[in-house]
Structure formats: C-alpha cells, structure tokens
C-alpha cells in the first residue's frame, strides 16, 4: 500500500467521525478557531480548510445556531448546537457506540486469529 492510498483512506475514515466530534464540542458555543483548538487538544488534528466549511454546512442544515459577537475588539461568529442538532447528536452518538462496539469485536477477533 502506498502512502497516498493510506492518507486517502485515513481522510475518508476521519471525515465521517469529524461531524460527530464537532457536534459534540458545540454543545458549548465556539468560534471557528476555538473549535479547531479544542479538537486539536482532544487529539483530533484537522486543517482549517476542512473544519470551517464543515461547520458552515452544519449551520446551513439547521444543526447549528450561529451568532456574530464582538469580543476583544474583534467580531467572531459563534456556533452552538440547535435543538435539531442536539437530537442529531444523540442519534449519531447511539449509532457511533453501536458501530464502535461491533468494530471493536471484529478487530479483536482478527487480532486473535493473527
């Protein structure tokens, strides 16, 4: 397997999880940079070119509420989960736990065979 192939697969794997991670963090209001920093601190490194358009798309889908606020002499757009976003987060969390459990079993049985 080439490095390019691995990078592509890794990107695809992370892309789906990223929505869940962003929704989970946006229970609290965040602006773009603070969200990215929080994700990085939690071990999810993501470039701004992916994250900022993603949160805009989530807001356009009605999963996030947004508001421009002035702080420290600068305006920033703060995002937070909407009611619809909260429901979505709940459903996606359940789905994630099911998948994680199933995958955990699959990967464990693979390791045992090896």
């Amino acid at each position: 397997m080439t490095t390019a192939q691995l990078d592509k697969m890794r990107l695809e794997l992370r892309r789906g999880v990223l929505v869940l991670a962003a929704l989970a963090l946006l229970k609290q209001p965040h602006y773009g940079y603070s969200l990215r920093k929080q994700l990085q601190d939690s071990g999810i490194d993501i470039d701004e070119g992916t994250l900022y358009p993603l949160i805009r798309r989530l807001a356009e889908q009605g999963l996030l509420d947004s508001e421009w606020k002035h702080a420290e002499g600068r305006e920033r757009r703060y995002y937070q989960l909407s009611t619809m976003g909260q429901e979505m987060l709940q459903q996606l969390t359940t789905e994630w736990r099911l998948l994680n459990g199933a995958l955990g079993n699959l990967l464990a049985s693979d390791e045992e065979k090896a």
Binding site: Y31, G32, Y33, S34, E48, Y52, R56, R74, R76, R77
Partner: peptide, 16 residues
Amino acid sequence: EIGRELNANIMDQLDA
C-alpha cells in the same frame, strides 16, 4: 458572509 467569517478566522490564527 464567507469573507467576513474567513477574516475572523485568519485574525484568530494570526493572534495565536
């Protein structure tokens, strides 16, 4: 709208 948001994001990164 996007220009305004991009500006805010870049300024935050420059601050950091």
